[in-house]
């Protein structure tokens, strides 16, 4: 049958021109896996997106095609999205005072100030 398309590839198909409905069954596009990309040895694996796959092995193959085909990549991880445990986005306020913890930050300690004060006092006495 000639579909009379400009595309020779389409003309080779036997298109069903009946207009019948085609329906994809729920679950037919498999499960979702999160993908983590390592750009070079020694770097962290970073989350870059996800792929649909029936199992982890194929998820890796698809991830290579989707996220490793262009830029530098030395390794990929995949994990089922369902296995990711995360905090509720609405609970982000529990991290709110992280920025105020100067006691666990180098900037929270003014050693030179004390040394200079001590030296100044020693000189004056």
């Amino acid at each position: 049958m000639n579909n009379q398309s400009l595309d020779p590839r389409v003309n080779r198909l036997k298109l069903n021109a009946s207009g019948e409905a085609v329906t994809v069954q729920e679950g037919e596009n498999w499960n979702v896996f999160e993908v983590f990309h390592q750009e070079k040895r020694g770097a962290h694996h970073e989350h870059v997106g996800c792929v649909h796959a029936p199992n982890a092995q194929l998820a890796l193959i698809f991830a290579k095609e989707q996220f490793g085909r262009r830029k530098k990549c030395v390794n990929l991880w995949v994990v089922r999205s369902a296995d990711i445990l995360a905090f509720d986005a609405e609970d982000e306020d529990m991290f709110a005072n992280n920025g105020e913890k100067t006691y666990r930050d180098a900037s929270g300690f003014k050693v030179m100030e004390k040394i200079n004060k001590f030296k100044k006092a020693a000189k004056e006495s």
């Binding site: 679950g27 498999w30 499960n31 979702v32 999160e34 996800c50 999205s81 369902a82 990711i84």
Partner: peptide, 12 residues
């Protein structure tokens, strides 16, 4: 390749 018993989830 589909596993009908697989629990499907949304991307994170």
């Amino acid at each position: 390749l589909m596993n009908p018993k697989d629990k499907i989830s949304a991307p994170v």
